[in-house]
Write a protein that binds this DNA or RNA. Sequence first.
RNA 1: GUGGGUAUAGCGUAGCUGGUUAACGCGUCAGUUUGUGGCACUGAAGACCAAGGGUUCGAAUCCCUUUACCCACC
Length: 376
Amino acid sequence: MFKLIKTEDKARRGEFETPHGTIQSPFFMNVGTAAAIKGGISSPMLEGLKCQVELCNTYHLHLRPGDDVVYKMGGLHKFMNWHKPILTDSGGFQVFSLAKLRKIKEEGVYFNSHIDGRRIFMGPEESMQIQSHLASTIAMAFDECVENPSPYDYVKNSIDRTTRWLIRCKAEMERLNSLEATINRRQMLFGINQGGTYDDLRIRHMKDIKELDLDGYAVGGLAVGEPTEVMYHILDVLTDHMPVNKPRYLMGVGTPSNIIEGVARGIDMFDCVMPSRNARHATVFTWDGVTHLTNLCYQLDDKPLDEHCDCPTCRNFSRAYIRHLFKSGEQLAGRLAVQHNLYFYNTLMEKIRENLDKGTFSEFRAEYSERLSQKV
RNA sequence: GUGGGUAUAGCGUAGCUGGUUAACGCGUCAGUUUGUGGCACUGAAGACCAAGGGUUCGAAUCCCUUUACCCACC
């Protein structure tokens, strides 16, 4: 149940009630693809980083350890010892990212495991069954994420198939939620809007899936190769057609600026690998912009990563020390940087919410939107 | 002391039947990273080839001397 508390122009401040607790929106979901945040962050540590929701991946967990294993272990919450909301991605994106190995048909997608190469099939029903086994709070629909740019006719056919898949997802989810043996019988289902970079297809697809009255709606297929301006334009024309009383999720986005701009266009939920992946590659976010920690200028720098940050990393360690850890290949380097970046992202969302509460989001946006993505 | 061997970027090496801007790995420096298969990827700087002399149109490559180090034997 999503409650809209306040708006400022198109930006929305809300509360999202789930069986695993209430989420304050807008919010960022911390990506733990294989039931783990990469970089060595355990669930109790994640609690200390202001994380509200963790995201896990259907495709990866299906392959390893197997969703049957997670089911027998009592579901993802118990398995990971994370008791706040979890969103599972459907595996649809892997159809796109593992494109070399796939074959898309009406019934679903055939592709090869990246682990052992074996041929596997996933369709809407399979994705829902796996996500039901994982027992996440929110399940995502099984969609096709087309690359940008793609030919108009291809995208047109693709969104119609994605709609047909969504109808099957909904039916299968209702069936699974009615079963006694299901761990989370109140699992929610989000639909995913596609349509490439074509305004009319985006809007048409949104109208089609809106009729299914799902628990939330996501915008997929953005930040996959198109210029940032194109992504903003799609959001500009699309969010007016999204349900007002349902959470809106911009999938896989993005930089701190992208998130601020997304909120400004009416988005409530985000997820991205950027804070964790960049951290593992020694790039950290600060309130003054982005910086690369292995740069020589930090060799003798006694300051924390960010002087305004009170994350566990910044409270304890200097840039010089963390730079040394990176140069030495120590695993601790990645962990300290990931802790900082996730805390930064979650704090960014907190500040966005505070500014929405105060009615000062537009000022916040003007001050930070560009600044946070510049290089220090 | 005698015989043999090696000296090429910060380090470890390739090139050594002589022929345009001396190659590779590591390291260094910088950049990339958007619903995470990949501990990742891209690029740059850096050596007048131990020193000196000689042969040759031309030498890191062939010859001589010196120096340093390595191995074996006294």
